[in-house]
Design a protein around this nucleic acid. Structure first.
Lengths: 171, 171
DNA sequence: GCCACTATATATAAACT
DNA sequence: TAGTTTATATATAGTGG
């Protein structure tokens, strides 16, 4: 990089906040700012304990999403604490009760989730004017793949916890 | 503001990205960064034409949301073009009918939107997880049907009217 | 709790690879 | 088409009103 005369870069320039007409520039800006937005969302969640969800639907109809707390964080809340054999009967009974409570709450939340699913699917269609067929699996963007991986992690974590706790298995 | 000695401010300090334990500081940071996040989301949408939705739940269980395009913006897309006085009677009648239909659907859709918000609030830890399950389904929720109906009706009426009025092009 | 301020950390537009 | 660099615009931590 030789810049014998003049500056090596013009540095960041002011841009008006309105649609970027130049397509390549728009694409680059989309990528950079989407990354930045997700980072900010993550930091907000971590710093303040808020739950944050961000969904971005590009002009190219690609879906990107971020949500915190992550599945892992949620699991830490819901996974039963390891129960050791040497624990007193009273403690174990308490743990069992807590577990039942968790299971009930989980079921309730899943029910809500079902309703949310429908609403979100419908809402996405509405807000972003996606074509009906765009809702198909033509593209399984990174978000979906990531969630699939997380799901795997969920099950691993659960079975690990149960093994170490020597608890009877759950669905 | 008198600071005869020492700097008037320490300026922005580096902070680790982890939970802020001091409650008042956490609250202030939440407000500032939430504002910043929404601004970034807005800019991303405007600059690149992407659709963006951001939902934040504070620890205090308060809901903040941002969506672009907004419900209003989307409705503006579907609303029929303004009808001018010099337009033929047939066109104006069709446009009026379409407008009435739009108004009715709009009211209904607002109601659904409210439900979505509530559902998201209720299930904040699980909605994205639930969405994964929905991705394989080909079901058409009532919300989508309503939109399709609305759009179909508007377009049909517009083109019918255009034909009968023999107008050369759309606005 | 909400603005204003300042100094500084961070994000990013352009250029370039 | 994506990553790296540079200079600069923007966000924000800490402070006081």
């Amino acid at each position: 990089m030789v810049h014998p005369r003049g500056r090596p870069s013009k540095g960041r320039q002011v841009i008006e906040i309105r649609r970027i007409e130049d397509k390549p520039r728009r694409q680059v800006t989309f990528t950079k700012r989407r990354t930045g937005l997700f980072k900010k969302a993550s930091e907000l969640s971590i710093l303040t304990g808020a739950s944050v969800a961000v969904v971005v639907f590009s002009e190219a109809k690609r879906l990107y999403a971020f949500a915190e707390p992550s599945l892992d964080a949620v699991l830490r809340c819901y996974a039963p604490a390891p129960v050791h054999d040497y624990e007193p009967e009273a403690l174990r009974r308490a743990a069992d009760e807590a577990k039942a409570e968790v299971a009930a709450e989980e079921a309730r939340l899943r029910d809500v989730a079902g309703k949310i699913t429908q609403a979100m699917a419908a809402g996405r269609r509405f807000w972003w004017e996606a074509e009906v067929d765009a809702l198909g699996e033509a593209e399984l963007p990174e978000f979906v793949r990531a969630l699939g991986k997380l799901r795997g992690a969920v099950e691993r974590r659960r079975s690990d916890a149960m093994l170490s706790a020597q608890l009877p298995k759950q669905p």
